[in-house]
């Protein structure tokens, strides 16, 4: 079992976790997802990342698509918290959603780090539809950890990880945490909302 140092998350998560994706595996997963996106979409897609780490992943995917296709992929950010059903996540400031292009009639790929209950994605779909009417919305996630509470599935998955509810999936990205990797950590009697991604 590989041990990694997990940067201090909110709610006092344990600092030790089991590494389930290395930096290299994470990079390869994003390369594969980028190819899959191109394979399945004939028309250029817009890539929209969900705050916070989804934004960094979306940024990387857009860059990868550009390097593969020599294109200029539209990129936006979305903060779905104002659309949640539980007013959750108010302990971090709401970020502006920045979608500076029309999404009407074109395919949009939503990007998030971890797919869990599906409630955040549900909120993101509502938020996105307030900006226009895309021809399709597809979902790309780095980790699918199961435990869905809504009929939502991802179109592009970096890694399927069976988890227990008492565990948290921590996605670390160079942009935010200083290094890349995904770790599975046991929740340390922390509040239910700390770092648990939906």
């Amino acid at each position: 079992m590989t041990r990694v140092f997990v940067s201090q998350g909110p709610g006092g998560l344990e600092n030790q976790g089991r590494l389930i994706m290395s930096a290299e595996q994470l990079r390869r997963a994003l390369v594969r997802i980028s190819h899959e996106i191109l394979e399945r979409n004939e028309r250029p897609v817009a890539v929209i990342g969900m705050q916070t780490r989804g934004v960094d992943l979306a940024h990387r995917i857009a860059d990868l698509i550009d390097s593969i296709e020599n294109s200029e992929t539209d990129f936006g950010t979305l903060d779905p918290r104002l659309y949640r059903d539980d007013l959750g996540g108010a302990d971090k400031p709401v970020q502006p959603s920045q979608i500076s292009f029309a999404i009407d009639g074109r395919p949009v790929v939503l990007v998030d780090d971890v797919l869990y209950t599906g409630r955040t994605i549900r909120a993101a779909l509502d938020a996105l539809l307030d900006f226009g009417r895309p021809s399709s919305i597809q979902l790309a996630v780095l980790v699918d950890r199961g435990h869905r509470e809504l009929p939502i599935r991802a179109d592009y998955v970096g890694k399927n990880v069976p988890t227990a509810r008492g565990e948290d999936v921590r996605v670390l990205l160079e942009e935010v945490d200083g290094s890349d990797g995904v770790a599975l950590v046991r929740r340390n009697e922390a509040p239910a909302d700390s770092g648990g991604k939906a």
Binding site: Q25, R28, A29, V31, R32, H35, E36, D144, D155, Y156, V157, G158, K159, N160
Partner: peptide, 8 residues
Amino acid sequence: RTATTAPE
């Protein structure tokens, strides 16, 4: 199948 495709 998508998820288990060998990474490039």
